[in-house]
């Protein structure tokens, strides 16, 4: 096998190497229940990263995901007593709406997506703060269990959260590989001008990508709210950058057109392994950030397929 062919396998080779490496240092790490927990812990972040993948795949960026998730925790908590289980649907729709607005601002008003999503994130943050009255809110335990018992607990030792994440992954995978939207995304990401010249309505698809990202971010927020049984406009803080990192490390570069949702799964797992390994390697708390940053540089340096990234800017 040539290096050229090997390149696209770099992300999961990186993941495997990391797992084996940490496992060699501490065999406890490789215990199934530990690996399972590791995967379970990353579920929410992974769901957010899934959505962002679509936007990055088209060459944009979504910085509003975290704020949308935050807002959703608040809205879900507030709506639960009124709407019951349909809260979930409403939340996802609201998320999609915010994503759509980002997409509109970025494609129609031609504001770079970096700024557009940041600004829309600000709006989401305000909504969250306003709705919550800047307090942490709590869900009624009975109501929560009535409506969302399917989101909590375990099935056969596997956390439900993780199952949901996997279902969403499969959904995203079908969207990416089997639908016209997914095909259009691929065309736009890999050759936007050719997509235009083929008569695709590129602007609409771009807005759709942002809307999908918003919907996934809201789903992540919903999972959060149910898991922690409440909502606050700061609940998902600290998730945005790791989620973006998961997408990038997985091998979907910012220039778009390469990678996809399966890559993001691997990326999210790499992020999870790096984080968890710090416990096993007994890295002191104060040094963990440095460790994370340095390993990240190493992982990215190894993972990205530079042949497909046109210019290294």
């Amino acid at each position: 096998m040539t290096l050229e062919k090997l390149k696209k396998h770099f992300p999961w080779i990186t993941l495997l190497t990391l797992v084996v490496f940490v496992g060699a240092l501490d065999s406890n790490f490789l215990r199934p229940e530990n690996l399972l927990q590791l995967a379970g812990d990353i579920s929410t972040l992974f769901v957010m990263a899934l959505g962002i993948t679509f936007v990055i795949y088209l060459g944009g960026i979504d910085l509003s995901a975290q704020s949308v998730a935050n807002m959703t925790t608040v809205l879900a908590t507030l709506m639960l007593p009124i709407f019951g289980a349909s809260t979930a649907v409403i939340c996802v729709l609201i998320g999609a709406l915010f994503g759509f607005v980002s997409g509109f601002v970025s494609t129609k008003l031609k504001v770079p997506s970096f700024i557009a999503t940041l600004a829309v994130g600000g709006i989401a943050l305000s909504v969250g703060q306003f709705a919550s009255g800047q307090r942490a809110l709590y869900m009624d335990a009975v109501l929560r269990d009535q409506s969302f018992s399917w989101l909590t607990g375990n099935i056969g030792g596997i956390p439900r959260e993780m199952i949901i994440a996997l279902v969403l992954l499969v959904g995203a995978l079908i969207l990416e590989r089997r639908t016209t939207i997914g095909r259009a995304f691929k065309a736009i990401g890999a050759g936007e001008l050719a997509a235009v010249a083929s008569g695709l309505r590129v602007g609409r698809y771009k807005m759709a990508a942002f809307a999908i990202s918003g919907a996934f971010a809201a789903t992540a927020g919903l999972l959060f709210a149910v898991k922690l049984s409440g909502g606050s406009p700061e609940m998902a803080n600290g998730f945005l950058l790791p989620a973006i990192v998961a997408v990038l490390v997985g091998g979907t570069p910012l220039t778009g057109g390469v990678g996809g949702v399966l890559n993001t799964l691997i990326g999210a797992l790499i992020v999870a392994v790096i984080r968890t390994s710090m416990l096993y390697l007994e890295i002191p708390a104060t040094a963990q950030q440095i460790f994370f940053g340095v390993v990240l540089i190493a992982a990215i340096a190894f993972t990205i397929d530079r042949g497909k990234v046109r210019t290294v800017k």
Partner: peptide
């Protein structure tokens, strides 16, 4: 190479790009 075909997509994906409605 820029406007005609999408490099990175297969022959069949390129073929239906302008007529996905008909193949879905």
């Amino acid at each position: 190479k820029i406007e005609g075909i999408v490099a990175g997509m297969s022959v069949y994906e390129n073929l239906t790009l302008s007529q996905m409605g008909r193949y879905s």
